[in-house]
Design a protein around this nucleic acid. Structure first.
Lengths: 131, 131
DNA sequence: TATTGTTATACTCTATAACTATA
DNA sequence: TATAGTTATAGAGTATAACAATA
């Protein structure tokens, strides 16, 4: 499974390289476009990344003018993350590129196997820690 | 897939912790017991780890007297890796522990899904890089 | 010349503690 | 007092270059 994941990640990163995105920055951008107004702590939890480590990821996306950090009026501690037009455009291009990546990776599996994998991945949950 | 792998790895490492093994050291031990006489460079390739990084892994196993580094008479540059009796005993215990881990992880998947995942993982190969 | 094992090193990822400004 | 975001830092894991011994 580790090796399979390494192969998938390597191919995905190669796919995203022309867009100057990595797996995390891609995932973050997708979540922000799909959930505008998201807060950093919510995004950190969704990505399963420490808040502290998310900061540099967000810094990068903001520095490239792909997203903005907007103060939340009702809670001045928090930032709402919103995509810019450039962010939405890169999102579109990235999504298309990732579709090609998925075709490459899933190539050789029949439809039944693909669905089984997707189901199986979602069955594996934190709950398995508790025995 | 990343999250699923993280869950699996965390559970596996917890499982191996009482035996003072991590995922890599476990994998290395298994390969050495199953292929006695293996050379470091072969093991590095099998584990998909850089030779340089394998050194410390082998150092650890050797330091705990689980394996030995034996000079190869026909090629004095190389070391043949062989398990000690203690190494074989730990291997047995580790294998049993990992069976429990697998039961936990695969729990909740029907037999068909398990087989599909195993097949799917083995379909994903370096070949997918070449398009 | 090339290869095996090794050392040193740098770079990335991840985890933790402590700070600030708000609530 | 607790929370959101931030900074600094330490620890893994991984990748690369260079070296000695040997082929």
């Amino acid at each position: 499974m580790k090796r399979a994941f390494n192969v998938v990640q390597a191919d995905l990163n190669q796919t995203l390289k022309p867009l100057d995105l990595r797996m995390v920055t891609y995932s973050a951008l997708v979540l922000i476009v799909d959930n505008p107004g998201l807060r950093q702590s919510q995004l950190a939890e969704a990505l399963d990344v420490e808040r502290a480590n998310l900061v540099v990821i967000i810094d990068e996306l903001e520095g490239r003018d792909l997203i903005t950090r907007d103060r939340v009026p009702t809670d001045r501690r928090a930032y709402a993350l919103n995509p810019t037009l450039a962010g939405r455009r890169l999102y579109d291009r990235a999504l298309e590129a990732v579709r090609g990546h998925e075709r490459r990776i899933l190539n050789g599996m029949d439809e039944e196997a693909k669905q089984a994998v997707i189901r199986a991945m979602s069955v594996i949950r934190r709950g398995s820690e508790g025995g």
